[in-house]
Amino acid sequence: MTPSCPPSTAEAGWLRRRGGEIALWLAVPLAVALFLPEYYLLATHVAALGLFALSLDLLVGYAGLLSLGHAMFFGIGAYTAGLLAVHGWGEPISGLLIAALVAGLVGFITSFAVVRVQHLAQLMVTLGFGLLVFEAANRARWLTGGDDGLQGMVVSPVLGLFEFDLFGQTAFFYTFVVLALCFIVATRVIDSPFGLTLEGLRENPKRMAAIGTPTAARLRQAYVFAAVFAGIAGALMAQTSQFVALETLSFGLSAEVLIMLLLGGAGHRYGGLVGAAVFVIARDLLSDLNPQYWQFGVGGVMVLVVLFAPGGVLGILRSLRQRLLPVARTSTAKAAPATPATKGGAA
């Protein structure tokens, strides 16, 4: 795919590293539009849930924070965008930003409590906040519609140009572009010194504290960051489906997004996206047959993944590549020229 000659400048190095990735990001929406236009709705779900799983990856995979209540931010984002659209603020992009802001604010407030505790207590505190918000939304029927969901959203055209159509074309491209922008931001954050700090905190918080990292502050920042992304994902889901279900706040969704992430491979930028794609497509295929097949199947896959493929789908691919290709291929993204015998198989 990429030429194997040594890069001459930093620019070429960047293109070499990211070229395949950029091609992939252009090819996927094109492929959906050309070959699978009847699956716009499904692809939109994958993109929104993929962004949601990516936001959880920042916490779980990179910062090593545990969360069983991440759907709280997804749901808050969805309800914020939904309520705005119901009450006359149908402009989608500003709705998205406001939803991100609200989710981030709630993330900021709760982050102090979440970072204070570890292990089981952290699982329980995040779970507890999630359940509290769920109960609040369930009881506030006058505002949220309770378990009937929030209905009557009117979303204006994107940028005043692209009307949300029946086939979901606009919805898909809108969601995909937002996902791509968020992914670029997430990549920058992960590659930054801040991202490296988070990985250090995951590996050994005591040592990070010893070398002078303000550990609690860094973890809180990661938590707020993940909350903002999850809020955007929820808002996308609400705007594209023009409906908000109470389940967007549920413990079930928090568990599902965790499953998606671990299925794809936590601690990897693409883990959440791959996991969301596999999960959503499999559910679409299997739950048509029988809901119990789906539940038994997803349970069985989770068990098998943990036993035999701890790195998820991406972990399997990585070990396959290491087994099939010579050792030298595994050292990717280095400026040093690789062995001459490199053919295809971009990183």
């Binding site: 779980v60 965790l258 671990l262 539940q295 038994f296 069985g300 943990v306 036993l307």
Partner: peptide, 28 residues
């Protein structure tokens, strides 16, 4: 006992998977 040395996330995923299987099995 294969999972005692794994992190809590793997254990959560594994045991939730078992729970799903038993819920579906009992329903069956």
């Amino acid at each position: 006992q294969r999972l005692y040395r794994r992190g809590p996330l793997d254990q959560v995923l594994f045991t939730v998977g078992l729970t799903f299987m038993s819920v579906a099995g009992i329903t069956w």
